[in-house]
Amino acid sequence: MNTPFQLRSAVPLAGLLLLAACSNNAATNSGNNAAGTNQAQDAAAKTSTFTAAKGCKNIAVMLPESDSSARYEAYDRPLLEQEIKRALPGATIQYANANNNADTQQNQADAALTKGACIMVVDPNDSDKASVIVQKAKASNVPVIAYDRLIQDPDIAYYVSFDNVRVGQLQGQYILDQFQKGNYELKPGAKLVMINGSQTDNNALQFREGAMNALQPAVSDKRLNLVFDQYTPNWDNGRAQSLMEGILTQQRNDVDVAYVANDGMANTVIAALRSQKLNGKVLVTGQDATLTGIQNILIGDQAMTIYKPIVKEAQVTAQLVAALSNGTDPGSVVNGKTALKGGGEVPSALVTPIAVDKTNVASTVIADGFLTKDQVCSGLPTGAGGVCN
């Protein structure tokens, strides 16, 4: 059986990246030559700023956790290792996972620097606290690429992620579309619950921002009744289930839509709904196109997820690592700038996310090899979602 990264590793980068015009956090690409020239100059300058990176082959890869989302160990780790070694022959990887602890991640970063890491790829557990990692690396002239989640520090070399505001907009627009179609028996006044990600993760803030961009008009005119809206510390799946159980008690099981920020939390929210025989009756969103999430979609317990082609994110990151090591211009890989909450912007490479429901599971995650049909259909009844036959 082919693994997802084997199937996708040869996908060309050209044309895969789009600057998200609708993101409030990325500068709009006006298309004028002056702006494009300045952007290219800013990106090229990064390759000469961090002297330790020149000729670097010792790369630290640091991921935030493994308990709330299966993606980091199942996809990000092997893809990053594969693509960095492909783009920079002879590279060695120091890998660490913070297991949802920002202090642990800082200690891991210190250890990586001590062991000679000269380029660091950091997916922060805490977007603010990870600034310490950036500053310690800077003191050694070592660049840090913020991977997937933004680090709130102007001295990061690059930021590689998906257009996270767009992720939230896709989730919110899906809810609105289903409401307008009358699906899930949704009617004016339908009760909406929002179980967001961790407030210490900048991505979670952007997901909610994007979702509310789509949903706020319907909330304001009372077509949707927002009865709960809360962040979930550390994206904790068990906490999400407890929140949903409390909401159902408070609302006497009268809930119509659960905006849930990712598939891990969605799965436990579904467990809470199932205990009240409401699974499949309440519209539940998700994100990451995990195996469990896709299976929940095919059996009807979850409405949609967001597919983020992680192989593209890993390929872009590897290309930036190679550019820093070789002292070369990363070129069009850098396609925008992302604003920091304290002011300033960082050069960014933003990949486009894709909304997935049962109508396009086969043409997206399966066709791309992100998940195989055998994986998706394992344990599901024949005919599930029109995919398993």
Rank of each mutant, 00 (worst) to 15 (best):
A139T: 09
N33E: 15
Q375Y: 05
E245A: 06
N234I: 12
D368Y: 03
K312A: 13
N164C: 00
D288L: 11
V356C: 03
N107I: 08
N389A: 09
V333M: 04
Q178E: 04
T317G: 03
L278I: 13
Q94R: 15
K129F: 00
D357R: 15
L17T: 00
D128N: 15
P12W: 04
R77Y: 06
A146M: 10
A266R: 10
V260K: 02
T364N: 05
T104E: 10
Q276A: 12
L243Q: 12
V334E: 04
G383N: 04
A21V: 12
I175L: 05
F50A: 02
A27D: 12
A10W: 11
N183K: 13
G385P: 11
A362F: 03
A44C: 10
A157P: 06
K115D: 05
S325K: 01
A384I: 13
T382F: 01
V160G: 01
Q94G: 10
G197A: 07
C118Y: 00
L340C: 10
V165R: 00
A214P: 07
A130C: 00
L380P: 03
V334S: 02
P143S: 04
V282I: 13
R166F: 02
A96N: 07
S68K: 14
G280W: 06
V334N: 01
V11I: 15
N267V: 14
T290V: 13
P309Q: 11
T305K: 14
K115Y: 08
L192I: 09
A40F: 15
V257F: 02
I294R: 05
T47V: 10
Y231L: 00
M212R: 07
S69Q: 09
A289T: 08
V321E: 06
M120K: 02
L18R: 13
T37K: 15
N202V: 14
P4Q: 09
L17A: 02
N107D: 05
Q251N: 06
Q276S: 08
F207K: 12
I151F: 08
P330A: 00
D67I: 15
A139E: 03
G182D: 02
S363V: 07
Q302C: 05
K308P: 05
F50Q: 01
N267L: 15
S30M: 13
I297H: 03
G90F: 03
Y72R: 12
G280V: 01
K115F: 04
I294D: 05
A60R: 06
L283T: 05
G379L: 09
N33H: 14
E185V: 11
S48E: 04
D254L: 01
G168L: 00
